[in-house]
Design a binder for these strands. Structure first.
Lengths: 262, 262
DNA sequence: GTCTGTGAAAACCTTCACAGCG
DNA sequence: CGCTGTGAAGGTTTTCACAGAC
């Protein structure tokens, strides 16, 4: 979704669809849970339910990895765990650096889900000199001045940005200059990076906004459900900023049933 | 993406593609920044660059909302901000409850990006009695026992779950029972909810895993870049757990031109 | 001339449905 | 039989490219 423009258009490298890659961690999690319960095999139907997808999709996804199942039986849990881990590159250790140790950075440093996969928090970096030396999640915070050295000393290729938005691009540039080629960005900023560097973003407020959209839609439908009185004058909600451009607005209003029972 | 099965298949309500909805918050953010700099109008090209998408996509997206631009000129910034906000339902106030006030919950409670949109943190809820009363981000944490009352008293329809995975489904059930119809889930669990309830999830370790996949790929390409020796024996990376099922493994290794030229 | 709005084409992703292995 | 693996169909999203408004 957020990956920077890279990804071999030609070269016909290895062809696992991006959508499939994004689901592999999900399968892996479900499989790990089964593995812990010592379940030996699982059918596509069961595993799909545990992962929250449908079984045809799961089978197709797995078909890109190879033929790992046994017809009439299902998939060997341990074997699949290994194959998916390998495909995702989790059989190796990934040192990660977190830059920006505020609330969120600290939360991530403490997050158990990282260590349990191949990720190791190798360094915590912050611009506040007062924080330097303070241990967070058992790791001493280091100062931004040493960023370059910290990254190369630890062989970090994945960086996590949890700084305020204003600092994000600058931090990103420094990370990239120091050799980082994958960035997970929590700052609400569009980062620009050179080719070959991947960026993924997590924006907490975006998720909420998407929920709000659907929530609003539901409210509208509810109202429309019984009363039928889908007023359309409700369009002009309150103070319609009517910023209107030059000439006459094309206006969307008019139609638009659902929205707001005023 | 993560939304629970709902979404009017028939009814032909308003037809804004989900992919477009997911980008509206992005455009809104870019537009807000322009608005703050008092930029009056913007072209699809400029706005697309600021939002990190391409301009054809942006124009298509906007075309679902209506004809808000002016040919030869561009889009009126203020007007678009209003229209998108309205479309997303951000012209109203959304009281949100956060359940599970650990590191992450606290980080979210403090997160500025919520308040700046229509979201208001109406309640913080935690199962630990020792936390009850403690203020986090200026709001006193309340105990889970009162969850039902808190939700209805505040008219909360959006809940955020930041509990440990074991508690997530239970909390989810209680939220839904109390009237919540949209859930943002940070716990690494597949939640099951009744029809009509939307769930979106944010899984921090999944994002890292996707990055690791691409990172690994890069390392491989690099090696293959000069030597041409695109070994495919590299499949057997190190210790292949060979969990093998009943009979003979189909092995991915050997064959598997991966893609599908077949 | 500039820049939007949009049909049409292409790419991508999901779902169906069933052949075929165990 | 049961369950995987997969062509083929169907749907969605992206991209192209240009007609038409300003």
């Amino acid at each position: 979704m957020a990956t920077g423009r890279t990804h071999r258009p030609a070269t016909r490298s290895r062809g696992i669809p991006e959508a499939t890659v994004a689901r592999l961690p999900l399968y892996l999690r479900a499989l790990t849970a089964l593995s812990e319960r010592s379940v030996p095999t699982v059918s596509s139907e069961e595993l799909a339910a545990a992962a929250g997808v449908n079984s045809a999709k799961l089978r197709k996804d797995f078909s890109y990895l190879g033929s790992y199942g046994t017809r009439g039986v299902g998939y060997d849990v341990e074997y699949l765990v290994y194959q998916i881990s390998r495909e995702l590159g989790l059989t190796q250790d990934w040192p990660v650096a977190i830059v920006g140790i505020g609330n969120l950075g600290a939360a991530l440093a403490n997050y158990g889900g990282f260590a349990s996969r191949g990720f190791r928090v190798a360094a915590l970096i912050d611009a506040d000199p007062a924080m330097a030396g303070t241990p967070v999640a058992g790791i001493a915070v280091q100062h931004t001045d040493d960023l370059d050295r910290i990254i190369s000393d630890n062989g970090v290729s994945i960086g996590v940005i949890t700084t305020p938005p204003g600092a994000a691009q600058q931090v990103c540039d420094r990370l990239v200059a120091a050799g980082v080629t994958s960035i997970l960005n929590f700052a609400p900023t569009v980062l620009s990076v050179p080719d070959g560097v991947d960026v993924r973003k997590v924006d907490l407020s975006i998720e909420l906004q998407i929920l709000a959209f659907h929530e609003q839609r539901k409210a509208g439908e509810e109202a429309a459900a019984d009363g039928r009185a889908v007023v359309d004058t409700d369009d002009e909600e309150e103070a319609p900023p009517m910023r209107a451009t030059p000439a006459g607005r094309k206006g969307p209003d008019g139609d638009m049933p659902a929205v707001m029972p005023a």
